[in-house]
């Protein structure tokens, strides 16, 4: 157990060294969420001041943008940290070391969390200062929203990392694109009722739907839906397990296919 923790710490140190080595990388982590927030923030301000029917729901927009970013950046942080190994042709060094797949996954999760905090905390403060929207007003429930979205992002990150190992850098674009499939289905900006009835089961099979519905319940009705969050946690446990099993299966498949030694060439 101690050796396992040492290896996770070694990998986290490795990723921390990379992050520390370039201020541009650090800036990039904050840059995209900040720019996105500016656009939506000004729209929020416009709607709020227009006194239209939309004004009362303008806050939902910023809450949704912030939480969507947690999901999106969490997955990017996980996958990009893994892609560093491919880009630097270091994967075989790791595969030949005593590092276990679960330890690699744990270090990627830890790094995803660190990148997420670096990226979202300044943006959250920016939103409060520029637009007067306080995401922390959602109360302690926000922690569960955050936790559930992060767990989902890791489950997806594990599958993407597995596909890159199996298919090579040809699957790299999935790192950017896979989350977009979820965007219309997990009801980020509108309630599930807005979808056609036949898509409802699909939406409720996606964990982010529970979080965004929960957020709307807090902001519109002032109620925290514990039931939704518990269901979401249970689903996330299943998805995270499936994500890790898929990662291990794709890694094993890559060992049959060959190419791990020359990965990144």
């Amino acid at each position: 157990m101690t050796q396992s923790l040492n290896r996770i710490a070694a990998m986290t140190a490795r990723y921390y060294y990379i992050l520390r080595s370039s201020w541009l990388r650090l800036l990039e982590i904050v840059y995209w969420p900040a720019m996105q927030m500016m656009v939506w923030g000004f729209l929020y301000t416009y709607l709020y001041q227009s006194k239209s029917a939309m004004a009362s729901t303008a806050g939902l927009l910023l809450g949704a943008v912030l939480l969507w970013d947690v999901l999106f950046r969490g997955q990017l942080g996980f996958t990009f940290t893994f892609l560093e190994e491919i880009w630097s042709r270091n994967l075989a060094n790791l595969m030949m070391s005593p590092l276990q797949p679960a330890e690699l996954a744990a270090s990627l999760m830890l790094m995803s969390l660190i990148r997420l905090v670096i990226g979202t905390l300044p943006v959250t403060l920016l939103t409060l200062l520029l637009f007067g929207f306080n995401v922390f007003a959602m109360g302690p429930g926000l922690i569960l929203f955050f936790l559930n979205l992060v767990l989902t992002s890791w489950a997806i990150g594990l599958v993407v990392a597995g596909l890159v190992i199996r298919q090579g850098l040809g699957a790299e674009s999935l790192a950017y694109s896979i989350m977009i499939v979820l965007l219309p289905l997990c009801c980020v900006y509108y309630p599930v009722e807005a979808l056609p009835v036949w898509l409802h089961p699909v939406a409720w099979s996606l964990t982010p739907t529970y979080v965004f519905e929960g957020m709307r319940a807090v902001l519109l009705d002032g109620t925290f839906r514990t039931d939704l969050m518990m269901e979401c946690l249970a689903l996330n446990a299943v998805y995270l397990g499936m994500g890790f099993a898929t990662f291990v299966a794709l890694l094993q498949s890559a060992r049959h296919k060959g190419g791990l030694l020359t990965m990144g060439e």
Binding site: R14, Y17, I18, S21, S22, E84, S88, R89, N90, A92, N93, L261, T262, E265
Partner: peptide, 10 residues
């Protein structure tokens, strides 16, 4: 192996 490199940024 020449197919493998150590992380260049470290």
């Amino acid at each position: 192996s020449p197919y493998v490199a150590l992380p260049g940024r470290l």
